[in-house]
Nucleic acid binder design. Structure first.
Length: 899
DNA sequence: CCTCCGCATATTTTT
DNA sequence: TATGCGGAGG
């Protein structure tokens, strides 16, 4: 077997032998890396340039090249710097060639950044690192070399989630199952979860197998894998799993890579899932006696029935013996920033590192270069509420007492929140802050909408980061499908996607016929179409259409080698009628789609060939956003990881949203801890200014819900936090008649007789003039006289100055203000009541099935926001109410009181 | 083939 | 509430 791989194995990137002084040089006198390498070898006392400016811990992390190393790199402690400098150091000291270093990241962005920074450190004279990339891109590289060992040809196609879902849908239908009852997406997700755990069809838990397709989950998974093999295709999970299986089975192959990779580096180790962990361990474990195989003691974790908590894979005795050998693996990560548990990441991997790699050096990077002492203090106090951490405390050596504290603000509802944040941003802008330095980080993307609406209204530039990606758009995927078929006529999934695009009258019936013919003849669908078009099995119309399709593809394929690929692509889109299709489309999106197609062609120019481009796109599903424009960034907390901004706004800190109810329901305590880590990530994005917001009312699924402040707010240390009375008071913009944003509708409501499951909060009364006090029997507080508060006065002013810049153009808001006034009169009686919640464990709230409503049709009720109204319909606890002023609304019964 | 209506669904996202 | 999907019907 080994002989089969020798050829591809020692090709481009395997330099035959090492010569530090020569290899990296291209011409001229020794300089750059070569000079540094020689200096290092000659034992000069002066540290090389690239080590200067590192702090002692960073330097230790760079210079401890031998043996297993775990670098616990807190937020903003120079993680990437350590990683790149470490690679530069290994290269400069002649410890390894670029091709002998395996460096894995999670995202293409991270890989790109690392390559670039290594380039800067080491000088342009060195060729790129061939084995620096994402788990998946390295997986493809391995699999292309050894494809036949996985039953594939080396030109296999990589399916993305969309392809996978369509394929699974076909399988479900082929099994005679109802694809409505058994959603293909759901099953695709299940398969993904199994693959994240490294499980083959025979290894999945019985319960999982039974849970789908009338208990036929296992067979379906198996059928799916078989279908992939037939199609000469694999999904993202396979890019890791196939190499794992090859390594396990073919020890000679594994041994080659053991010899090859002298150093292994892993970025964001806390995000690794079980499959990635298995993959890494296979590559990292070296058998004791030189090149001997690991035969007989190869761990087969996937079949191990017993695991520790949360799927932890305790190393077996055999593995421990194996791993005694020195392994130069360096994992960098931060357990406090592990936020991807829901997609299979195992925090345990990082928590267990020292057990997995006995004798490991653990280095903590805690010196933070990003944030102020207040922000770090807040972050530290917050994250300290988590158990099971490795434990780190960030510090800065430039404390500045003048720094602003972390600001906590209250708002009445999400619209007001958006308004207040907008005003805060404008205030910063007036103080010459760049919009580019500000970001709004939300928990869930639906929160973005109120900000977008508001910013459009006031003409504030913003940019949404994340969301649907360039390569996931319909027009791009269609165009890609054309190209895929041209490059590989066996790509049936791509073919099916576009046979009838633009519409050519090839309906389901014809496509089924192509399918059947293809299967009967054992040929790809394109081939089958060609033959069908020549036969008279089809009616004239589809036959002609199909003949044209087949002829088109034949022509394009014949041009593949002779025509520049960008030109060919343009030709394909033109001749297929695809561009015309969008030109004739009068919908609003059509021009944008044409623009995207142009962009696609443009981006192809960077690649040598169509194939090179397609390979790239399969794995790199990101496209750059337009820089240059000064705009506020809006994104989710998840996509903010790794970024930093001068000023950060964190809206929506309410129970149920953040921590998210679903995380609590499904993840229990560990779910809560992951939410807290997410909060920690959010807080640590800020360099100087941090504003946290919560609202009292949020519309969820169209129903107004009264909310209570997030428990995370209570976990912030008072010393570093300043509570802003009234949402945007410090920016002098707005206010509501109650002197600020929020009523004590949440916790205040509880304390009136119900139990607040989270205990009293110091935010209970924030912004509440009388509601909170009334509810809790007056405990004074900062709002003992609501009419004296700045907020109230501001509100009065605002009401009279209707032409004020902040109000004038927004009739909607003005109406809403008046609405508040109406509410005012009845407020005392209209105290909110909130449904109780059960508590599971100590801290975790479970949502509770709502009891039937005590109200009936015709009842006269009062609602805080909408005023008085009559109940028009009752559905469980959901009420449809005709409000006197606000019209018909649906509202939960907990938020209205009988009048 | 296109349009309209009813129905389910409504965190987080990379490769 | 809003969105998107799939089926039914023109």
């Amino acid at each position: 077997m080994a002989g089969d791989h020798d050829m591809p194995f020692f090709d481009e990137d395997d330099a035959p032998r090492f010569d530090a002084a020569r290899a990296p040089m291209q011409q001229g006198a020794p300089s750059g890396i070569a000079a540094r390498a020689m200096a290092a070898r000659q034992g000069h006392n002066n540290p090389p340039e690239y080590l200067k400016g590192l702090n002692p811990e960073q330097r230790q992390a760079v210079e401890t090249t031998e043996g297993p190393v775990l670098v616990l790199a807190g937020a903003g402690t120079g993680k990437t710097r350590v990683l790149t400098t470490r690679i530069a150091h290994i290269l400069a000291t002649g410890r390894a060639f670029p091709s002998q270093i395996l460096a894995v990241t999670f995202t293409n962005k991270a890989a790109r950044e690392m390559k670039q920074r290594i380039g800067i450190l080491v000088g342009e004279a060195i060729e790129g690192m061939p084995w620096l990339g994402t788990f998946h891109s390295i997986g493809v590289k391995l699999l292309r070399r050894h494809a036949e060992l996985a039953g594939l040809r080396s030109d296999f196609t990589i399916l993305d989630t969309d392809d996978v879902t369509r394929l699974i849908k076909q399988l479900i239908q082929a099994e005679g199952l109802d694809d409505k009852r058994w959603a293909p997406r759901t099953f695709a997700q299940m398969v993904d979860t199994w693959k994240n755990k490294g499980l083959a069809p025979e290894e999945i838990p019985e319960g999982d197998a039974r849970a789908f397709a009338n208990g036929r989950g296992r067979e379906l998974y198996r059928a799916y894998q078989e279908r992939l093999t037939t199609l000469n295709a694999c999904d993202f999970g396979d890019l890791l799993l196939h190499p794992i299986r090859i390594f396990r089975k073919h020890h000679d192959v594994l041994a080659e890579y053991h010899r090859k990779f002298k150093y292994i580096l892993v970025d964001e180790y806390q995000d690794t899932n079980t499959a990635q962990y298995m993959w890494l361990r296979l590559l990292a474990q070296r058998p004791k006696g030189g090149n001997a195989t690991t035969e007989g003691r190869e761990p087969d974790r996937a079949t191990e029935p017993s695991r520790g908590p949360r799927g932890a894979l305790a190393p077996s005795g055999a593995e421990q013996r194996v791993s005694e050998n020195k392994v130069n693996i360096c994992c960098v990560g931060d357990d406090d920033q592990s936020i991807y548990g829901w997609r299979g990441a195992e925090v345990d991997n990082i928590l267990r590192f020292e057990k997995d790699f006995p004798g490991a050096t653990v280095i903590r990077l805690e010196r933070n270069y990003r944030s102020t002492a207040h922000i770090l203090g807040a972050a530290a106090h917050l994250i300290a509420h988590n158990e099971g951490r490795l434990g780190k405390t960030l510090f800065t050596d430039r404390p500045d007492p003048e720094d602003p504290r972390v600001n906590v603000h209250a708002a009445w509802d999400s619209d007001e929140e958006a308004r207040a944040v907008g005003e805060a941003i404008e205030a910063y802008q007036r103080n010459r802050h760049q919009l580019n330095d500000m970001a709004i980080l939300v928990r869930a993307s639906f929160q973005m909408r109120s900000f977008e609406d508001r910013f459009i209204e006031i003409g504030l530039n913003y940019r949404v980061i994340g969301g649907p990606r360039f390569y996931e758009r319909q027009e791009i995927r269609d165009a890609m499908a054309f190209l895929r078929v041209v490059a590989n006529s066996g790509d049936d999934l791509a073919f099916e996607r576009i046979v009838n695009v633009p519409k050519r009258g090839l309906g389901d019936a014809t496509i089924r016929q192509i399918h059947d013919t293809a299967r009967a003849l054992g040929v790809p669908m394109l081939e089958a179409s060609t033959r069908l078009a020549e036969s008279d099995e089809l009616k004239p119309k589809p036959r002609a259409a199909l003949r044209e399709v087949a002829a088109n593809f034949a022509r394009w394929q014949s041009l593949l080698d002779s025509t520049p690929h960008t030109e060919l692509a343009e030709m394909i889109l033109e001749e297929s009628g695809y561009t015309d299709m969008w030109k004739n489309d009068r919908s609003a999106e059509a021009p944008g789609r044409l623009e995207n197609l142009k962009e696609l062609i443009r981006s192809m120019e960077e690649y040598e060939s169509l194939r090179a481009f397609l390979e790239h796109v399969a794995l790199v599903m990101d496209a750059e956003q337009n820089e240059g424009l000064d705009a506020v960034s809006i994104m989710t907390l998840h996509s903010a990881k790794g970024l930093e901004f001068e000023t950060v706004f964190l809206p929506g800190w309410e129970e149920g949203l953040f921590p998210h109810q679903r995380a609590l329901d499904e993840g229990g305590r560990s779910g809560l801890e992951e939410e807290r880590r997410l909060a920690y990530v959010g807080v640590t994005r800020a360099k100087k200014n941090l504003h946290i917001w919560f609202v009292s009312n949020r519309r969820i699924h169209g129903l107004w819900q009264s909310t209570i402040p997030s428990r995370f707010l209570d976990e912030l240390p008072e010393a570093h936090v300043e509570v802003q009375e009234g949402g945007g008071s410090s920016y002098g913009g707005y206010g509501n008649p109650y002197g600020g944003g929020a009523f004590a509708s949440g916790r205040g409501g509880f304390s009136a007789g119900r139990q607040n499951p989270y205990g009293a909060s110091r935010f209970d009364n924030l912004g509440s003039p009388s509601g909170g006090r009334a509810a809790r029997g007056d405990q004074g507080g900062s709002f003992s006289n609501s009419y004296a508060t700045p907020g109230w006065q501001r509100a009065q002013q605002n009401r009279t100055e209707a032409t004020d810049r902040n109000w004038g153009t927004r009739s909607g808001h003005q109406v809403e203000r008046i609405g508040y006034g109406e509410v005012d009169s009845g407020y005392g009686a209209g105290r909110t009541s909130v449904k109780g919640r059960t508590i599971e464990g100590e801290l975790v709230a479970k949502s509770v099935a709502d009891a039937p409503s005590a109200f009936k049709v015709g009842d006269r009720v009062f609602h805080q926001k909408f005023g008085n109204g009559n109940i028009a319909a009752v559905d469980g606890n959901k009420l449809t109410i005709d409000f006197d002023r606000a019209g018909q609304k649906k509202v939960l019964d907990g938020f209205v009181t009988a009048v």
